[in-house]
Design a protein around this nucleic acid. Structure first.
Lengths: 215, 215, 215, 215
DNA sequence: TATGAATGAGCTTTCATTCAT
DNA sequence: GATGAATGAAAGCTCATTCAT
């Protein structure tokens, strides 16, 4: 709960939310993430937030409004900056190799990523069904990221550190593997014992060198 | 619809299903896949199947029963054989290189994979929320595949075609990228124009060699 | 209740309604008429009808649907025929004078009018607020009646029994006074003691001769 | 809005109302008249009045209080004086004939009647459902008017200008026709084209002489 | 005095499930 | 087996009213 409030601070600080609104958001994230949007009831969220059910509808006209109010700022304020910031650092030559950059991205932000997981899970679950969200996701996240990423990747390609492949495909493959790791680790098989450090390193090495053995 | 019935034949032929049952299953797959399990109503499924609502409950005690009846056989009869069969072929030295094997797996079964997508989508959507399904998925799919895969991978590793990495991790990374491609291609961004052949080839090359440039 | 069922027979017999549907209609008429549409709750109607609340919504998609299902057939099947039939009789020379016709219309159909009152009250109450109903009312009742009435009135005018005034105005004034009497008698001041026979006769005389004294 | 404020001046000036209270009353009249009492929400009225919801309840303990505060003064301060004043004028022999009186009453006060319509509509709509209002209406309007009217009518009857009919019935019939005209003109069929002058004259002639042709 | 966030009872509506036919 | 009317619990949502500021 305390950790989640930290994330909320980052996510929602700029809007002035009342105390109850924050509680509603927190409870909604928790519930949507656990059961999925459609299977979560507003009465359950209200109970978990310690507010009356009517209070939810005073702030969010509909249940879907509540969902959008959670996911939308995540996309605008959080995911895009997360990646862009690092890619800009990359441009500043902070990291000499792509491995270092990936390692730093994942390692530095692992706590954050883990804390983001509930909302990320909601996003991944609902985007296939909510055209509204899908459109937002496409406009805010995909276009933004892929745009700013292009020159970065080109830069590395010019330096001879990345293969010649269209930046979109490179971005897709990289993101797939990072999200795929998180999804396997925390959503599909959280009950398995994972050596996180090791598995992240393997993922990075895989991204860079693949599975084929070099002679 | 006709294509889907083909899949159903493969999936459900062995059980003797009545005509109505097949219609129910087809309608349920379509609806669950479009809206998600929780957001689908049995009345809508009944209407789409052209049967009375009561008929659904004559064959499937509950709505969840219907879901399980769709996803479970998929796991036992479909996914496992899909991979295992090919890996056995691999053992039979049908494919000399891993690339060839991956290419064959994806290319040969692409139609099937596409036809499977609705059910796959249901599976991916519901496994995080349905412990019952998750347990089944773990027992039937994960254990089986990972078991039979182990020696295959080891074989290739001994032949020097795959890097020295625990087979589980290799399996995880490979599956992640195949499913990740399908998810991006057909669920997240179906509206984009994709050159499927090309993108599959890139995915295979990526799996084998990564993004790093070799000197 | 028994009387109301008689009216329902006339009103709804042609459609094959289930027993429960009839009970719902009866209860809805009673409740809407007593409290007005907006102040009536579906749960109250359900309780009064002795059915589950869900049953109402199985037959009528929304509460407004229920309202329309009550008022609409009244307009098509009841009010128009009521007047038209008599005016046709009039054409058949059944009544020599207009007084006789009015007296017959009101007297013959008094029971019916009284039984219709609840629905009539609903109609009068809701037409100002429900554009849907207003449009129907205009098309089905007003146009029909005024059309068929026109020639009748002209006939009487030619016979020198009615003054030269546009038929629409004559119709408006006549209907106003009949409904005005019913409204005063049964809705505004039901608690007063009325000598119905006498007051009807006065209304008829008023319609024909006005309040001014002839010398 | 400006016209309505004029009416409000007449209706509510004597009580010292704050600016906000006037805005609330105006907004309530508009809303109740458009949607009916039960279908109007206090939040909508507050928004239309430009005040906070709480402010309404500071001045009017309940929503019904607000309704009564609108309709009650209309009955005490407006309707009764309207008629009584004119009937007193009548006694003062200001009008020689009843026609003249009726014409003057309607013509002189037409603007006022039109401006009153929203409140009149509320009154007519709610009296059937609010026993409180009905009692008030009966005590303040009916008794008063009918009392003071009695001798006036008798006066005219003695002068041989009105037929011998109980004053209550004469009052009822006259009021029915005036309200009936307003109701048809402004509530039921406002969309039709009306020649107001002509239709009022017809109504007056009808009240005095009826529809029957004199030989 | 005025505000508007908060309430909770009650509303309309949905829906999985049952059962007489 | 198949039907679909009926159910009632629970869903999403509204709204008059309260109260701390």
């Amino acid at each position: 709960m305390i950790e989640e409030e930290l994330m909320l601070q980052q996510l929602f600080d700029e809007d002035k939310l009342t105390d109850k609104q924050k509680k509603i958001i927190t409870a909604a994230i928790e519930t949507f993430s656990e059961k999925g949007y459609a299977a979560s009831s507003t009465s359950e969220i209200a109970k978990k937030a310690g507010v009356a059910e009517g209070t939810i509808f005073r702030h969010y006209k509909t249940k879907k409004d509540l969902l959008v109010s959670i996911v939308a700022p995540l996309m605008t304020k959080f995911i895009a900056p997360l990646v862009v910031k690092d890619f800009n650092k990359l441009l500043d030559r902070e990291y000499e190799t792509v491995e270092e950059f990936l390692r730093a991205t994942i390692e530095n932000r692992r706590d954050l990523l883990i804390r983001m997981l509930p909302v990320l899970k909601i996003m991944l679950q609902e985007i296939p069904f909510q055209p509204e969200l899908r459109a937002q996701f496409f406009d805010l996240v995909v276009k933004n990221i892929f745009n700013s990423v292009e020159k970065v990747i080109k830069g590395y390609q010019e330096k001879g550190l990345l293969i010649d492949m269209p930046p979109e495909s490179i971005a897709r493959l990289t993101i797939t593997n990072i999200l795929g790791f998180l999804f396997s680790r925390y959503i599909l098989f959280p009950q398995l014992e994972w050596d996180d450090e090791l598995e992240i390193e393997r993922t990075i090495q895989f991204i860079m060198h693949g599975l084929g053995k070099k002679d």
